[in-house]
């Protein structure tokens, strides 16, 4: 918290228990770590260029996560809420497109690498 900050927007991603009606048991996350960090830094810098934000936090876990656990947290502070909301949304949306992290959904009858196939 800094005195100039008027608001902090926090996005907390959580593991859902179902996908397209199928029961999800757990998720397994994997990252190409050095490049993932580099891409996250690029996204943070883009947020600073696009909006008058003060602080940006991007946190992503890897490994096995059970339903309800938290794989990703994004937090953005700014003098005014609009910038914080917009930047936070941009960061999580862009992270899902460019950061080399992959998740495998584990079902009762099998597992799927998300987004791998059309």
């Amino acid at each position: 918290m800094s005195p100039e900050s008027g608001g902090i927007d926090v996005f907390i991603g959580t593991v859902r228990n179902a996908t397209k009606g199928k029961n999800v048991i757990r998720l397994e996350f994997e990252a190409y770590e050095p490049m993932a960090i580099a891409e996250m830094e690029k996204i943070a810098n883009q947020a600073f260029e696009k909006w008058p934000v003060q602080k940006v936090l991007i946190h992503h876990r890897t490994g096995v996560l059970d339903v309800g656990e938290v794989p990703v947290v994004i937090a953005v502070s700014a003098a005014h809420r609009a910038a914080a909301f917009d930047a936070c949304r941009y960061i999580i949306d862009t992270l899902k497109q460019t950061v080399p992290i992959w998740k495998k959904e584990i079902f009762e009858d099998g597992e799927v690498w998300v987004a791998a196939h059309p």
Partner: peptide, 26 residues
């Protein structure tokens, strides 16, 4: 070398090269 490459980019023996399937972080 930790950057997305273009089809025309040249490769070198010491480069760190990786295949990046569709990402699904978040």
């Amino acid at each position: 070398n930790n950057e997305y490459a273009l089809p025309g980019d040249n490769l070198h023996e010491r480069d760190e090269i990786a295949i990046i399937p569709p990402v699904s972080g978040g």
